[in-house]
Write a protein that binds this DNA or RNA. Structure first.
Lengths: 210, 210
DNA sequence: ATATCCAAAATTGGCGCCAATTTATGCTAA
DNA sequence: TTAGCATAAATTGGCGCCAATTTTGGATAT
């Protein structure tokens, strides 16, 4: 009985338009500043009007899009000060748990991080910008998860989205990407060696230049 | 021309049902765990069904209420671990900017903080729990604003709401309230004296016991 | 030729209805 | 008397329509 219900429940969490729009903002498909017309989104994502509106409202709550009453929603573009402030927050949080990360990291964790850092490396040459972006996310997620504070992980994931509204375009220079990759390895090495001071320093520099 | 528009713009930002429900959750009128039926809210706040649903969706996004599909929304009650994790986050952020707070505080700022701390003191005896709660919020808002990072202020305001779902009921013991008040004064004194270490310590203890 | 004003088109946003699901109630059978 | 089931009530949630506002295009007057 209730085949449909069963199907729904077993099925991976039904993806919501919010995530689709979010992904397109993150990957730069929807450029910062551009207006998000409800009709366009409705067609693009093959969904209904109320769904679009709910998604836009959610993204506005997260300050990823800005809402102008009776005018519509447009992709938010953080000014320099806001970006700097958010970076500051990330540095406080991520360096603040650096010692916990180093303490909790098992040999297997270090190995997994090495692999993720290597994957990022590899994708610099072979992958698309989007793949690179996602590999970066995966690395940082794994790294931060070691701190043991899942609320903090969620929070940082959230505010990381807030800064890098157009992360793909930001990484235009090869030199900068390679620098990022070096810092990834630097972090892993610091963890493996238990050098929390070096880890904090690497994290700090990494966030500042991102 | 456009009298209405003018009126609307000049008028204080039209308050939204979300804030009303939020306030009632914060002050404990809507108890943790209780179900928020759409019909009840619709009547209680004299608003339409879609407004209620939008508000509930927003509060669910902020994790102040929990959504169970086809069952409804109920006030979120954080378990011990989550509460501890959120406290940990607040300590990282608020002690992290303690030096900035101390550095930026002018004589007038210190005076204003003294006044807010005194107001809290006074309300312990004379005020209602809600007034006390709001005086506490005002003190902390003023204090944190001195750090100069407005994004951080917004963020902490947001996550502070997340921990203390029923702050009024938490403060049942007089002893605890008075301890809080002492710590307020302790913080102000530390700022006035420029003793950042003492400030960090006071903030840390204050958050942990809250 | 250009600025201003008016009208039409497009877009946003509010509201109510109805289907789907869940919960409560009462009835029947063991 | 109690457990199970079926039916009814209540609640949630999706969808579409229409009003309100804004924008665009064009016509007129200076």
């Amino acid at each position: 009985m209730n085949k449909v219900k069963q199907r729904e429940a077993n099925n991976a969490t039904a993806i919501d338009v919010t995530d689709l729009i979010l992904h397109d903002i993150q990957t730069g498909v929807l450029a910062p500043g551009s207006w998000l017309k409800q009709i366009d989104l409705e067609q693009r994502y093959q969904c209904t009007r109320p769904e679009v509106r709910r998604a836009l409202d959610r993204l506005a709550q997260r300050r990823l899009v800005e809402h102008v009453p009776n005018r519509g929603y447009h992709v938010f573009e953080p000014d320099g000060r806001q970006a700097a402030e958010v970076s500051e927050i990330r540095i406080l949080l991520e360096t603040g748990v650096a010692d916990k990360i180093a303490a909790n990291a098992s040999r297997a964790d270090v190995e997994a991080l090495r692999e993720l850092a290597a994957r990022f490396d590899k994708l610099i040459l072979e992958g698309t910008p989007i793949e690179l972006y996602e590999a970066n996310l995966a690395f940082h997620y794994r790294l931060l998860s070691l701190c043991g504070n899942s609320e903090l992980v969620k929070l940082v994931t959230e505010i990381r989205q807030r800064t890098s509204s157009a992360p793909v375009s930001q990484w235009k220079t090869r030199a900068r990407i390679e620098q990022s990759s070096r810092e990834h390895h630097e972090m892993v090495n610091a963890i493996a060696a238990g050098e929390t001071a070096a880890l904090k320093d690497a994290i700090s520099r990494h966030i500042r230049q991102d």
